[in-house]
Nucleic acid binder design. Structure first.
Lengths: 135, 135
DNA sequence: TGAAAACTCTAGTAAAACTATAGACTATAT
DNA sequence: ATATAGTCTATAGTTTTACTAGAGTTTTCA
């Protein structure tokens, strides 16, 4: 299941992508427009900012804004930042690889074999979609 | 993330697929061979049996066995039984569809758009793999 | 027939993850 | 100055996950 965090994050990004001139939008406005708990959204936007996807401006007239053009924001990046590993199992993860404690031989493991394919197909989707494609 | 339940279930199925003559294998033996907690495995095998993937035999010499040939067991079925919906979001699920409470218009929703593609690509993998392919 | 082997089922629980909230703090614009 | 708006830390409630306990039932075979 996709976490609410990722879902809300994606919605916020989409919303911000539509803003003219990349002017800052307040958290409250995004929250209201997308039906998201404001406090929860705060922490999500913060994560997106820390990971270089959003910029922020404090004080009056402040808010969050896209730091890059939607065409340049890959879904692989967004997903990794919000949802974490794209692989369903650490032993097939490119960025978060971990060995299984059970499972003596990865090459022989049926789960490994299947999940490798699933990862590749998901990666294929994420790599071929930018934020612009979702508008 | 793939649940342990699904992981263990897949391993058990793979193990059973290799058994000659489909003779019943005791839970304890599968658990030991695949490094799985026996009691936990019990409940998983039970689920698989209830969903028509395994047969069981009670009493002395009993155990679990595949009820169909590995070539005839699709991963879509296995995944739905063990892991639940293949879609990451209910609003793009074929078998477990549900409308989002937020989100006024599905067609306009960026999350929907992206997750539809992810679902399709995952489905594509699961439909093209039978248990036999994982051996 | 009876006892051991093996599956069935219900219930419960500890830990982790997820979702959300509260409140104090800091920076900025005007 | 002061109102505005993001930042940070802590924490509480809920749900899911991964198991465990234990009693019960069915089957087989001597």
């Amino acid at each position: 299941m996709l976490s609410k965090k990722t879902k809300y994050g994606l919605k916020a990004l989409t919303f911000l992508a539509k803003v003219k001139n990349r002017e800052p939008i307040q958290i409250a406005e995004i929250a209201k427009h997308e039906n998201i708990s404001q406090k929860f959204l705060e922490s999500i936007l913060l994560t997106l900012r820390r990971n270089g996807l959003l910029g922020s401006k404090k004080g009056k007239g402040g808010g969050y804004y896209l730091i890059k053009e939607p065409e340049d924001i890959l879904m692989t990046t967004v997903m990794r930042v919000l949802e974490g590993p794209i692989a369903m199992v650490p032993c097939v993860s490119l960025n978060f690889y971990e060995k299984c404690d059970d499972c003596p031989d990865e090459e022989e493991c049926s789960v490994h074999k299947l999940m490798l394919q699933v990862r590749d197909s998901a990666l294929d989707v994420y790599r071929n979609n930018t934020l612009a494609d979702l508008l």
